[in-house]
């Protein structure tokens, strides 16, 4: 019975996931991510590099408004390091005793500030295309990490006969192949503190790992508890099966 359900659930997964992937327009590269799978966890070093890429490259156009600095301890930072990271940003606060607004350095309880005050300003500054907030981008796109990675590394020469409209860029992964975002990553766009060579692929991987964490910060806790629950239930099923056999042995059925 259990086996039947497991197989059913898994095969259902395979059957429905496959056409869903194929229905998107662009070419999606498939990668193995450290957070994939039942035991997958985030790669802390990569998350920290990804934060650096976000801060130095993406943050000029994309917000990350659902992520609080305090949660950066998940990346392996100490609270003191988190305070330093937060303090690099300025926030308007107030009103003070005189009723005036004032600016103060960020604190762990603050959230990443968005680059534009509102959607209209974001559209105006970017030729009409609003750069989406990245807090949930990995969960909000079919293909998740693979999709975001493929977009970041999908900038190519347009094939012959393909005209890219004004203000657009050819991207092999984007549905329709024309994306408003200019290529964000270039070789050595950042200098990694840990000495990792900053290739486009490396930076894309790191920032995608970071955004995956940003979208699902409770993933590790979820899998950890899940493992305990599954082991518990398997034993419970065994015990209940024993009772069931015992009880029904007395019935002619």
């Amino acid at each position: 019975m259990r086996k039947f359900f497991l197989t059913a659930a898994l095969s259902l997964g395979v059957v429905t996931a496959a056409p869903a992937m194929a229905s998107e327009g662009g070419h999606i590269k498939r990668l193995d991510w450290p957070q994939d799978g039942i035991f997958g966890t985030y790669d802390r070093a990569s998350l920290q590099r990804g934060l650096q890429v976000y801060q130095q490259v993406c943050a000029s156009c994309h917000g990350l408004k659902r992520v609080a600095f305090r949660t950066l301890t998940d990346l392996g930072f100490t609270m003191d390091q988190v305070k330093k990271i937060a303090a690099e940003y300025e926030f308007e606060d107030g009103p003070d005793e005189e009723g005036e607004m004032f600016t103060r350095p960020g604190a762990p309880y603050d959230y990443f500030p968005s680059p534009f005050p509102n959607e209209k300003a974001a559209a105006a500054a970017n030729g009409g295309a609003v750069p989406p907030d990245l807090s949930l981008i990995v969960k909000a796109r079919r293909g998740r990490e693979d999709y975001v990675y493929s977009i970041l590394t999908g900038y190519e020469e347009a094939p012959d006969g393909f005209t890219v409209p004004e203000g657009g860029h050819y991207n092999s992964a984007f549905p329709g192949n024309v994306i408003a975002m200019p290529p964000p990553l270039s070789e050595d766009a950042v200098e990694y503190a840990d000495g990792t060579p900053a290739t486009v692929e490396q930076m894309a991987k790191d920032v995608v790992n970071f955004l995956s964490w940003a979208a699902e910060p409770k993933m590790e806790e979820r899998k950890r508890i899940g493992l305990r629950v599954v082991i518990f239930l398997v034993i419970l099923i065994g015990l209940l099966y024993g009772i069931y056999r015992r009880v029904w042995a007395r019935v002619d059925h």
Partner: peptide, 21 residues
């Protein structure tokens, strides 16, 4: 006894979705 066993099996399937997908 039979329904309890059924619930436990269901709980396992449910948990696999909740925790892993």
């Amino acid at each position: 006894a039979k329904d309890m066993l059924g619930f436990a099996v269901f709980a396992l399937v449910f948990s696999i979705f909740i925790f892993y997908s």
